[in-house]
Write a protein that binds this DNA or RNA. Structure first.
Lengths: 232, 232
DNA sequence: GCAGCTTGGATTGTATACAATTATACGAGG
DNA sequence: CCTCGTATAATTGTATACAATCCAAGCTGC
């Protein structure tokens, strides 16, 4: 979503609003609250032991995060995400992750490069062991490292937003098949291109990595899950 | 309608929060509130004749819009925008406007195409007359038409965000030189490529259009205005 | 029986009161 | 004169009270 620059991920862990925000976000992404479900201020407030005020503010934040849709004087609803939205996001991400990889080729620090290598190594290990949760976690982390390495707050934030936005869908598809190994292999190639300072190659590989990820999702039934339901 | 989009244009014109939000946004973009200036809840509330509650909620929205930075227990500050931020945004926009033009080649409606042609025609007229305000307005509108024509809510919204975000800077540069005419000529070429269903050409032209716009900004002293001040 | 109005409950929108936190000014001690 | 601690004022964070709005159930009149 673009356009925010420095959203401080300070997420304000210790204010009530911040805690409510994080809790709701997690619950939405994990699927506890289904799409189009209505969230009521008092109910959430009572459940978390706070008043309506921090809940309301958390709602407003979640709306701009794209997880809630607030209808004035009516209510807050968990947003739906259509198959076309997912497709468009991957199309956009393909371009931007490519740009990100290109920039990272110049800007990546030694520490980031080391963490990236470690990430890939670890992912292979967990892949052998079949640790699905860790695989998903490492996959997310790989991309976060890449985003940070491009040294552009704007690009980093944009990509993190999109990345987060499709998490709801991705969780259900990555762990269910053999995409994990192929994905990690692509990560390795991107990493090696960056290490070799081959920006063109890094960009192309990152482009293709997104396309492959999307194709895999489609192959594994994205259409069925997120059919053509239209959002209100 | 924007229910599944990442951010919602539900600008809620008739709620107090919505009005406060729009007012503050406008004032920040127009430069009434300078960068790093502190906005106090009570002061804003009194100025607009409302209580702190809607002001606070508007602040939270503006933070996610990237116009405010809220420091917990301390205050809300107008965000700075660095020269690097602007550069990064144009880099990203170059890619995405290209994608947008490519998609629009397939998806544009007859009405949108007609408005686009009219836009370019009008812009030439105002260029001859030296109507700077209208030129800026038409320039904005051209891009909005393009965004709408790509038939992707996700891409449209992302681009609108970025577009809006650099308005603070662009206002000061477009009207001060001869970029207007060149810009409009580039619009015409993009439009003609779309009309000819030449997606590749439309994409490339849109890419270059952004690069040219950025180069022009740099040439006209962006660096001096938005030096290397670091955002906190 | 049904259309349309009325009314009541539920929910959000806003205002205000109170608590917690931060920053600053001032004075005591060195 | 400087430093540190305390007190106080200013500001934000949270809770609660009240107003406005929406929705649906039920009543009325035909």
């Amino acid at each position: 979503m673009a356009g925010y620059d420095i959203k401080h991920d300070v997420n304000d862990k210790y204010s009530l609003r911040g805690r409510v925000f994080q809790k709701l976000r997690e619950d939405i992404l994990s699927g506890k609250y289904k799409e189009h479900e209505e969230l009521k201020e008092v109910a959430i407030g009572e459940e978390l032991g706070v008043s309506r005020t921090p809940v309301r503010e958390a709602f407003r934040q979640l709306e701009l995060e794209g997880l809630l849709q607030i209808v004035p004087n009516k209510g807050a609803y968990v947003t739906g995400i259509t198959a076309k939205d997912v497709k468009d996001i991957y199309m956009i991400r393909s371009l931007l992750e490519g740009l990100c990889a290109r920039l990272a080729t110049e800007k990546i620090t030694k520490e980031q490069m080391e963490e990236m290598e470690e990430n890939i190594y670890l992912a292979e290990f967990h892949e052998d062991k079949g640790h699905l949760d860790q695989i998903a976690e490492l996959d997310n982390r790989f991309h976060d490292i890449l985003y940070e390495a491009c040294d552009s707050k704007m690009l980093e934030h944009t990509l993190k937003d999109f990345h987060q936005y499709v998490l709801r869908v991705r969780q259900r598809t990555l762990a269910t098949n053999t995409r994990g190994r192929a994905s990690n292999e692509e990560h390795r190639q991107i990493m090696e291109a960056i290490k070799a300072k081959d920006a063109d190659r890094a960009e192309k590989l990152a482009n293709q990595h997104m396309i492959n990820a999307y194709d895999n999702m489609v192959k594994n039934g994205l259409k069925e899950i997120y059919g053509d339901e239209s959002t209100s």
